Computed example of a mutant assay.
Amino acid sequence: MNRKTLTTIAQQHLDVSTLDANDSDSVGFHSVSTSSLDSALTAAYLAGYAAAMRAAGGSQADALPTERHVMVGSTWLGEGDAADWSDDPRAETIVTAPIPEVALTAYRWLEQKACDVLIPTAIRQRRIS
C-alpha cells in the first residue's frame, strides 16, 4: 500500500484533500465523524490486506517491506543485526513488518516507554521470522 492509496482513501472517506504536512491549521486539522473515520480505517485495512495477499502471491509491486530488530529476551536493543549490537549469545535478530514506533525514541518523554513496552510488543505482533 502506498501514499497515493492512503491519500485517495482520505479524499473519498474523510473529505481531506491532502495528507501532506502543512503549517496551516485550516489545512492540517480536520473534524471527521466517527462513521467516516470507521469507513476510512476499514478501507485502509482492506487495501493493506489486499496488498499483503498479492505480495504473498509473488507480486513484486506489493513486496512487503521488512525491518531487522535485535532482542535479548523481551528487551529491545535496536534496529539491525544481533552481531552489531551484542556479544550476548541470547541476542536474536528478528525480521518484522515495519515498526513506526521506533520513531518515538526521538522524543525523550516517550523514549523509555517506547523501548520497554511499545517496540517489544510491536516486534512480537509483527514478527515475520
Rank of each mutant, 00 (worst) to 15 (best):
N2F: 03
N2D: 15
N2I: 10
N2G: 15
R3G: 02
T7Q: 15
T8A: 11
A10L: 06
A10C: 12
A10Q: 09
Q11I: 01
H13W: 04
H13Y: 08
L14W: 07
L14F: 07
D15W: 00
S17D: 15
L19K: 08
D20E: 15
A21T: 12
N22L: 01
D23R: 03
S24F: 02
D25S: 12
S26A: 12
S26V: 10
F29G: 00
F29V: 14
F29I: 15
H30Q: 13
V32Y: 06
S33K: 06
T34H: 12
S36P: 00
S36I: 03
L37Y: 10
D38S: 11
D38Q: 13
A40W: 01
A40C: 07
A40E: 09
L41S: 06
A43W: 00
A47T: 05
G48P: 03
Y49F: 14
Y49A: 11
A51C: 07
A52S: 12
R54Q: 14
R54L: 14
A56H: 07
A56I: 01
S59T: 06
S59A: 14
Q60E: 14
A63W: 01
A63E: 15
E67F: 01
E67T: 09
E67A: 04
R68F: 12
H69A: 03
H69R: 09
V70Y: 05
S74A: 12
T75P: 00
G78S: 07
A82G: 06
D84A: 14
D87K: 13
D88Q: 08
D88T: 04
R90G: 00
E92W: 04
E92H: 03
T93L: 09
I94C: 06
V95K: 11
T96V: 09
A97M: 14
P98C: 07
I99C: 08
I99S: 02
I99F: 03
E101N: 12
V102W: 03
V102L: 13
A103K: 08
A103E: 15
L104Y: 12
Y107T: 14
W109P: 01
L110H: 09
E111H: 05
E111N: 08
E111V: 04
K113Y: 13
A114C: 09
C115K: 15
D116F: 01
D116V: 09
V117C: 02
A122K: 11
I123E: 11
Q125I: 01
Q125E: 15
R126Y: 04
S129F: 01
